[in-house]
Amino acid sequence: MTTLQARPTHTGLGNALTDHLTMIGRCVRLTRRNTETLIMSIALPLLMMLLFVYVFGGAINTGTQYVNYVVPGIVLLCTGYGAAATAMAVANDMTTGVIDRLRTLPIRGSAVLTGHVVASVARNALSTTIVVTAAVVMGFRPRAAFAEWLLAAGLLLLYVLALSWFAAGLGVIAKSVESASALSFVMLFLPYLSSAFVPPHTMPRFLRGISEHQPITPVIETVRGLLTGTPIGANGWIALLWCTGLLAAASTFAAWLFRRRNAV
């Protein structure tokens, strides 16, 4: 062997693409093989749906079949679990030697987080499909046309993307995998303070304020409207604004945190 082998160059668009694709491939592979996390992020929302539809649902008056009311909320709850797993995966990379290895390779730093975010979106797409299919089995009867399905899927995709970047940012600042899991609590809790499970007008005044002005409610109302025909009103635009705003803020913030953490 010789050490005088010609070195490949490390700049250019093609290499940037390779870096990103390689990191995405790695993260998807790791996600697929981390069976416990994958099962949990699908099983928990399913259990919650069973619980709400068959246990609490009978006592909650939403003016419609409860299963039709609750599905969008369960889908967003599901994303929360998926994003928590992303925060933990990023934290795992950041707190083990992996990040040092990656950083001593001549690659773009952004590829590290992008890999996790894309894997997160893929995992959420899978779990959402499973949850919606299960809901149909349980009596969920959406009345959406194809275009409405597409719009709902598009909005959810945007929301998942924003939440995944947010989770990636949490993973970067977390000091350990456990603390990343603890930090993601907010993403698991927020859906309960929204219109996901009960109409906000049944809540005490101050909670209603939180519920009506947090990002999850307009996203849920829009998805619910698109799928089951409830009125959407201004929620569509508000949801879109929240999601794009969150996406821009979270991705910028995560990238900034990543550079800062690595600049010691």
Binding site: T18, L30, G97, D100, T104, L105
Partner: peptide, 29 residues
């Protein structure tokens, strides 16, 4: 250069071959 740090920088959920191939791809081979 290359660095082998105090903490083994290997992915437990990937095979040995996959770990090596990922680094090779990131080295733009």
């Amino acid at each position: 250069i290359s660095l082998t740090g105090q903490f083994a920088a290997v992915d437990d959920q990937q095979t040995g071959r996959e770990n090596l191939t990922v680094v090779g791809r990131l080295m733009h081979l």
